[in-house]
Design a protein around this nucleic acid. Sequence first.
DNA 1: TAATTATATTCAAAAAGACGAATATCATGG
DNA 2: CCATGATATTCGTCTTTTTGAATATAATTA
Lengths: 127, 127
Amino acid sequence: MNEFRDEITILKALAHPARLAILEALRQSEACVCHLEALFGWRQAYLSQQLMVLRAAGLVADRREGWNVYYRVARPEIYAVLDALDQAVPNTESLPHPAFLSSCACPQCQGKSKSDRLTLQIEVENR
Amino acid sequence: MNEFRDEITILKALAHPARLAILEALRQSEACVCHLEALFGWRQAYLSQQLMVLRAAGLVADRREGWNVYYRVARPEIYAVLDALDQAVPNTESLPHPAFLSSCACPQCQGKSKSDRLTLQIEVENR
DNA sequence: TAATTATATTCAAAAAGACGAATATCATGG
DNA sequence: CCATGATATTCGTCTTTTTGAATATAATTA
């Protein structure tokens, strides 16, 4: 039963709505924590905890740039798993994920001209 | 975050070595509980518990035939998920799964001629 | 109907996971 | 070096999951 060890770790990491949502967000591009904070409206510590689990499972990697830490997917093959899952599930309706908010103050955001930024308001649960 | 509910249930069901093993066994064909018992060498109640979780997640279905209850995969698309996972993981070595033992007394087994049966002995953890 | 076989469910204790609150770390600007 | 901004970690509590043990149920045969 040892052959499963890694798979189990990854499946456990995936089996959580917040972490799935993070991975969906990172599908589009890498993102700093403040981005994700703005996107989801979660407490910073909560977000960090979830990122920690994803990191421990080897699913995401991080890169520090000054104040900000950028997260990216470390194992893009994981999306094949998620896609296959979507196929397998009598899916309610998997709405495409909301784009990033512009409320993040990281240099990457501030570098963009205001008109480039998306202003889509999304409703998320507050945690 | 509601779109994930079903996926989460399924992922949780998958995130367990015994349940993954059961699904791998059922990949080949349906099997009665006694088969799986003989194959894995687990307690009957333990096996039944795991089957219950898989059933609750909608992953397997059962069919009663006299004394025996045969389990089969209810959502074959799930194997696409498992295959994708295998691809994604720096897999130790995913040994092909052992064939069924012949020690099961169900009619399906007894119907086979002795020479048809596999006698491969496998080592499994005893639970 | 009673005994038997195959399987399912319940119960309880231990372990693991979730998450809010508080606190720590790390880089930067003054 | 100190204050601040961004992020990470620790801690405590609550909930869920895991699993052995015991017990229950369903089908079958005597």
